[in-house]
């Protein structure tokens, strides 16, 4: 594995290797000295074209626990205000010296371009590109799920037969896309739910089931229900008539939460949560909610990715 660009192209073996390595990395986080010397002398560049303190901090923690040097490079451009080109920015960073580039970008495909167009010789880790993919988020979700289901016996196990429901704005969600492909690769059964206006065209060709009736799906006792964040701009785009109507249909309201309270159904959320919109306070604060574990596991998974891409590379 040279880059991590998308879960669409991640093989079963590589996915499992990342999860199993993350399992080992998690033990580092439990030590009093949370640091391994593995990537000493290597430099990880966090290149963020879009604000995301959470993801950037998680990658930074992961790199530092592996003793890598970290450079944070935030670029304030958007599709409207074009500045320096992606190519120039990356080549500037290479001149400064980096071994891996962790990139968050507003443009779908930016990570692929970086990896494939000869603009960079670094290992590229996609930390979210437009509405395309966010592979490390899906990996940490799978890791969290696997740990909850298998505990200390998790290593080596996939998600065969596990039923995961993803609810909300599938159309614009890179998290949903990465999860669909990875969960499918690991053998899980995926159901998508949400307003039909937020389902992508051609979703019928994806390895998923689409069911608009969230209550009906929850009654099937899925292993996990993943609530996606509703972006404010979707409300203005007339994808649904009102936030209240969204919440009635596809929010994990208190009433709806009560139908799965005290069951084994896990409640997942990539964060940050919109309490009162896609998730009620009761659901957000319940023991079934894995949101904080997801954050903690994010560091372990990102350590695993950095380790697998960089260990044994020149510069070590």
């Amino acid at each position: 594995m040279r880059h991590l660009l998308a879960t669409r192209e991640l093989s079963y073996d590589h996915a499992l290797a990342i999860l199993d390595t993350a399992q080992e990395m998690a033990t580092v986080s439990d030590r009093s000295i949370k640091k391994l010397p593995t990537l000493r002398g290597q430099t990880v560049v966090n290149l963020f074209f879009e604000d995301s303190t959470r993801t950037r901090t998680s990658f930074e923690a992961a790199a530092k626990r592996l003793s890598a040097d970290v450079l944070n490079f935030a670029v304030k451009t958007s599709s409207v205000s074009k500045g320096e080109s992606l190519k120039d920015t990356v080549q500037t960073l290479e001149a400064i010296g980096g071994d891996a580039i962790v990139m968050r970008h507003w443009a779908s495909g930016a990570a692929q371009q970086l990896a494939n167009f000869g603009w960079s010789s670094s290992a590229i880790i996609n930390a979210g590109d437009g509405t395309h993919e966010h592979p490390t988020q899906a990996l940490l979700d799978a890791f969290t799920l696997r740990n909850r289901l298998h505990g200390t016996q998790a290593t080596g196990k996939d998600l065969n037969g596990v039923h995961v429901v993803i609810v909300g704005d599938i159309l614009h969600s890179r998290v949903a896309r990465s999860n669909v492909w990875l969960l499918h690769t690991l053998g899980a059964k995926v159901t998508l739910s949400g307003p039909p206006t937020l389902m992508p065209v051609g979703v019928n060709t994806w390895p998923v089931e689409v069911n608009y009736d969230l209550d009906g799906i929850l009654a099937q006792h899925p292993d996990a229900v993943m609530m996606l964040r509703v972006q404010a701009e979707r409300m203005a785009g007339a994808f649904f008539p009102s936030p209240a109507e969204y919440t009635r249909g596809w929010g994990l309201t208190n009433d709806r939460y009560q139908t799965i309270a005290d069951t084994d159904t896990l409640i997942m959320h990539p964060g940050p949560m919109n309490r009162g919109l896609e998730i009620s306070a009761a659901a957000a604060d319940s023991a079934q909610n894995t949101a904080l574990e997801q954050v903690a596991n994010g560091v372990s998974v990102r350590m695993a990715v950095l380790y697998l891409l960089l260990a044994g590379q020149p510069g070590q």
């Binding site: 779908s108 495909g109 993919e133 065209v201 051609g202 019928n204 060709t205 994806w206």
Partner: peptide, 18 residues
Amino acid sequence: AQMNESALSSELGLAGWP
């Protein structure tokens, strides 16, 4: 719109031109 609207545009995360 960025490309033909299809299962592929959905996969690539590019806005579709139906």
